[in-house]
Design a protein around this nucleic acid. Sequence first.
RNA 1: CCGCCCGUAGCACAACCGGAUAGUGCAACGGCCUUCUAAGCCGUAGGUUGCAGGUUCGAAUCCUGCCGGGCGGGCCA
Length: 593
Amino acid sequence: MNLEKEIRIHIKNAFKSIFDTDLDLAQLFLQPTRKEFEGTHTFVVFPFLKVTKMSPEDTAVVVGNFLKSRSGMIKDYNVVSGFLNLEIDTSVWVSCLDDMLKNQYWGQLADNGKKVMIEFSSPNTNKPLHLGHLRNNFLGDAISRIFEAAGYQVKKTNLVNDRGIHICKSMLAYKKWGNEETPKSAELKGDHLAGKYYVLFDKCYKEEIATLISKGVSEDEAKKLAPILLEAQEMLQKWEQKDTEVMTLWKKMNAWVYEGFEITYKSMGIEFDVIYKESETYLLGKGIIEEGLNKNVFYQRKDGSVWIDLKEEGLDEKLLMRSDGTSVYITQDIGTCDFKYDDFCMDQSIYVVGNEQNYHFNVLFSIMKKMERPYGEGLYHLSYGMVDLPSGRMKSREGTIVDADELIDEMFTTAAKHTLELGKIEKLTENESKNLFKMVGLGALKFFLLKVDPKKRILFDPRESIEFQGHTGPFIQYTHARISAILRRASSDGINEVLLPILEIHSREQILLAHLMRFEEVIAQAARDYSPALLAQYVYDLAKGYNGFYQELSIFNEPNDHLVTFRISLSRLTAKVIRRSMNLLGIEVPNRM
RNA sequence: CCGCCCGUAGCACAACCGGAUAGUGCAACGGCCUUCUAAGCCGUAGGUUGCAGGUUCGAAUCCUGCCGGGCGGGCCA
């Protein structure tokens, strides 16, 4: 039963019967009652005064009376100015709880027949992942899980940027100074090894620029003429010509990097359904240029370059192909759109990419719509803000990059330290303990990054470690562990969990139930708004609500058997929803901690 | 110069489609473990929601202008 919907129907009936007016269900929305008043659901009457032609108070009273006497589900009501606060009948609460517990699909919305492809992570193979990538990965992973829960068929993809000038920079530096070093000999993860040479390239490049400038070359010129850069560009050309030596080095170094990434993804708990490589897609898109010219969506300039005019969309004129016939960045993205569609026939396609590319995706999507692609309307850029340090943006040359592997390790260590200090896990095996530390450390990190509205930037201060108390992942995990202890005891005491009638439940229990009932709506909304943060907020509020209940009401010392059963069931459902919500965020929850 | 996003307590974040006295955590202060896990709970203090107008029964929320911060804008990715 959908309690809120039922109430709305009764309100609709009230207006029909008392005021002879038909109202749309959609406009009769309810809000949670503020905790200082009795009741759980509040109906605001202000918007309907034109219909009732009564004062707000009288309107609320009339509707309240109708609901109380006719709906069979409202025990009582109270009116505070124009707010009608409703108290739900206890038997209704109990049957709602029963319904949710028995519904094995609670938290999984019905299949809507739609397919969505979600692209995220998309690392470059010339350096290891950093904190910014973590936000991307966690967001992408969470939104994938949320869409699945919302009834979509999801395909998670990772388009690896494995070619291009930046890759050649690492390769060139390695060729020059690598001395046949390997991840094994250097005792470095492969991605970190590649990153080391990328940094070396940059260092040399900077020096060369300085030298040129001291010889009187302008800065702009120096940046273009530095010998090592020219050499890298030459290498890129050789790569494009599939030069054997270059290809061999490229394959060797990329393999190292992939090995390194695999370890990082594993420690993050992230997997993909498909991995695309840019080396296999970078030539796509040229065919579409011709199609666009034929359709008169694109136009050609005298020099032969191809453009699209997006001024009507509030964008600019945009270059799609250079005068020499080579393609630019966006051309391959255009091609990749079709490539993905050929692969998956999706209705929607989500790109999890930082907000620095907002403009780029506006352009890309406008183009695909103009090209009348079947998936055109379903393209969405899940844009997120940067993760900044107190000093501003992370900069590799200033050594302020927060490395993903290091940060995750640090989280594990901190989690272990906290857990051991509290000394509550003597019963766990060494393996179980280790698993717990990872669960909690990663939970803290993921929750920290996911609780914030994606489009806002996040400030990360490395000097202040990520919290384990308060509005955090571990707080929620802890609540789950606590409930697990209750459930263990209930089962060892052999308590029968069949719900039986009760006269009254506490307001804390009502609020908790009302919150639990909102779960599926939150999933739908999180998908609709592309925001895991909504779910993070929801599950935090749930844990908070449960802890209040837990503190105030005793379960096993309650004399009334029916209430004992009720509270255990309520706890069981809460644990279930916490686990499910956290899983949708990519976070696991422990049974003990 | 133009475009997009953000601005809420010392700090970090909420506030659903415009609704009640703008919530939560951290930090500070004061309570609560012989009773189901104190990574918890309860309380105190902390706000001119960047500024100025407008829309209306009602604005953190919608509109306009300004200020501050971020990101981006025809042959880079």
